[in-house]
Design a protein around this nucleic acid. Structure first.
Lengths: 216, 216
DNA sequence: GTCTATACGAGGATAGAC
DNA sequence: GTCTATCCTCGTATAGAC
């Protein structure tokens, strides 16, 4: 965890002059994300990852202490990026947006991050159930702020009267996140453009299944 | 796949006189399901499974050709059981039930099967993204009839005017199944009774988030 | 920093006794 | 049918040269 730092975070931010080591480290992270996302944690050998990054397996150990340290770094990068992307989209909405519009935006942004951002985004979701429990614990702690964000979106919408108040918001939250995250199991390119899927899914979740009753 | 037969299916049906081999095979399947569900495909050693079943690792090979054959058998059992449970609940509804009632029942039954039936049910969901691709292919083919069931439930509801017709039913289907299946990643006993969770989730999905507009 | 070579352990799979 | 013993492969990790 100590070596998490620089690359994972800076990747999406300002990139000043990076040392050669930092650059290579970044390349390894992207390579690992790609391999992990497609082969899962099980099927991913260090050899595959090294090859993808253009070096030898042994060389990885200059940058990461172990295979596990590498997965953890990839997953941190992934979940931080998803969270950042959602916050960015919400920020772009401006203060005039209604709670339901904000919720709609968050749904769309999260799904889009998972479907079409970097491999790390989807890898972090796909592997959360496969990774050793100590790693998973730490990642879940890191997700708390993100969970709070969603809790806030939902309670705001409920306070505004846009969500009926006989539903359990925790359940709603898990249902929404679940529907979105499960996309890593079924989505592939020929299902259509991620933007279309994201828009459809957001519409379904926010507006529900029932026909609007005609205004009386 | 050829050895799939008897136990996996009969488990939920009539159990006549079984040979000793059949009984042991069944015990191994349940043990494997338990280990796989908790440790994932990665972390599950044949030694663990054998121990759980009360025998030695080598003895497993009398009943299963390989570790992979074992996972596949577990997963077939799991997904067949879930499907059977949902069909059973739908069957119990009787012909008077509305399409939306049927949909509601299916949601509840699927989630309940995943949360509180045998370990194989949840294991089959949890591992679908971890298993070698040839196995996954076969399992997905086996899921087609189940997918068709859901497609039918949704189109029936739409034809009856209970689902607005500007939504993409494939997306709705994936969203619902996703929300339900993702529960294997977050549910544990102290989140409350599975029955309660299932009821809440079904209510949210069927009735939506918006308050009912007062009858005019 | 990255390479090559190798030590090492783990776990899947097989053989043969009982 | 199940056990014990063993083989063998594979992949992580380390050591040391460049």
């Amino acid at each position: 965890m100590s070596k998490l730092g620089s690359n994972a975070v800076r990747a999406s931010g300002e990139d000043r002059t990076q040392t050669k080591a930092e650059l290579t480290r970044g390349r390894i992270l992207e390579a690992a994300a790609k391999v992990f996302r497609t082969r899962g944690f099980v099927g991913s050998r260090l050899t595959d990852i090294a090859a993808e990054a253009g070096l030898q397996a042994g060389s990885l150990y200059y940058h990461f202490a172990s295979r596990e340290a590498l997965v953890e770094a990839v997953m941190w990068a992934g979940q931080l990026r998803t969270e950042a992307q959602v916050r960015r989209c919400l920020g772009a909405l401006g203060p005039a947006a209604t709670p339901m519009q904000r919720l709609h935006t968050a749904v769309e942004a999260h799904l889009l991050a998972v479907l079409s951002s970097t491999d790390a985004n989807s890898a972090s979701i796909k592997m959360i159930g496969q990774v050793p429990s100590d790693i998973r614990e730490r990642l879940l702690v890191g997700q708390r702020a993100y969970g709070d964000l969603w809790r806030g979106l939902l309670t705001d919408a409920q306070d505004a009267g846009d969500i009926r108040d006989d539903v359990n918001l925790s359940i709603v939250r898990m249902a929404i996140i679940g529907a979105l995250n499960w996309s890593v199991e079924w989505y592939h390119a020929d299902k259509g453009h991620p933007e279309k899927i994201a828009a459809d899914m957001a519409a379904v979740m926010i507006d529900g299944l029932r026909p609007r009753r005609p205004a009386c």
